[in-house]
Design a protein around this nucleic acid. Sequence first.
DNA 1: ACCTGAACACCGTTCAAGT
DNA 2: ACCTGAACACCGTTCAAGT
Lengths: 222, 222
Amino acid sequence: MPQPPAPRKTPGRPPRISREEVVGTARRIVDSEGVARLTMRRLAAEIGSTPMALYHHVRNKEELLVLLLDDYAARTLHRPGLPAEPRERVVVCAAAIHEALAACPWIVEVLTADDLLSTSALWFVEQIVDGLVACGLPPERAVHGYRAIWYYTAGEIVVRTTAGRRRADDGRPTYREQVFDGLDGDELPRLAQVAGRWQELTAEDTYLDGLRALVDGLLRPR
Amino acid sequence: MPQPPAPRKTPGRPPRISREEVVGTARRIVDSEGVARLTMRRLAAEIGSTPMALYHHVRNKEELLVLLLDDYAARTLHRPGLPAEPRERVVVCAAAIHEALAACPWIVEVLTADDLLSTSALWFVEQIVDGLVACGLPPERAVHGYRAIWYYTAGEIVVRTTAGRRRADDGRPTYREQVFDGLDGDELPRLAQVAGRWQELTAEDTYLDGLRALVDGLLRPR
DNA sequence: ACCTGAACACCGTTCAAGT
DNA sequence: ACCTGAACACCGTTCAAGT
């Protein structure tokens, strides 16, 4: 095994804060007050340092957010037991990713950073792609299938958390409510029919139903 | 028809700028320089006024963004011809929404405002719900089906545009590239197998394939 | 009624200097 | 090598006053 570079004696001023401390403190702020409150200045104050000291440990705020997501994924993304049926493996792994993200609404800001969340999520991606291949998809189609599942999952999180944020803002009627109140039942009969129940219907958690539909659709004979 | 309230004579100082002018100018800034450059101060400067004058025409920046999305939807969301086959109607309408959004990457910031984009999009939602009902789904399941389609569509836009934004930033290897370079082929064989083609595979536009899979899945016999 | 100026309470980041 | 202080170039929004 290659050794880490031997620590030079007094290579300069000894560090007062570490990258781990920066990320850990950022996590505490985010958990207790939300991402909006995480600023470089606030973080520096919390850590008892200056904004600029942080830039010795992270490249910039964006890197800090990615590190935060990584840290979160490593701590909360636990590998589920894998069912024997490959289709069920796909569903279980997608649902595990979804569950971890849903518990962590601030993630939305960083979620779309790239097409995979973090190294900790790779195992889940592997299981999903492998499950789709085991069900008969060629590898390329399996990757595309994984992407479709990721779009659906990310979209569900983004839409649901932002809608929730909006609702919490104030008591005024939402844009949606205004729209439904002025609905033309002649031109839009189906929407008029469900207008009264829209709120209730869309508040239901139907992630799993949609996921199963998508997976079944991806694996349908063509 | 109810008349609009009669304009009082000299009800005060005559307006120098209008809400339409505010939204129109905001649109020009966003189209030419991106959402990031749309600030209340910049907008006021562009309009030849002061930041505070804007607050007489829009409640705040968030309302401005929603108005912008509305304006955009009204101008670019054109109703397609409807195929006879209801399943195909669903696909065509979802694809039309997707196409309008994809041409307008700044939308991501506002996209998740609520579960429907704007009044102009209601017709599309109606067609999708109606198409699903015509295929045999009960109204509640049709609404849930619409939601699943919306999650998938919004997710595709959000993930794709943010990934593109990231890529354009600089020439350094992306987080994803780093991750794939250090991939353990024993633990993650499927990912190792496609690692070299991941970029190419995920760059392909497979929105329609995934959409058809999802719609087929939603309509499968159960 | 509508607009202005000044101010409040912030941002992320750079630069030059200190230890 | 690591940290500090001061500064740069911004934000959205409120308040009190002017026309």
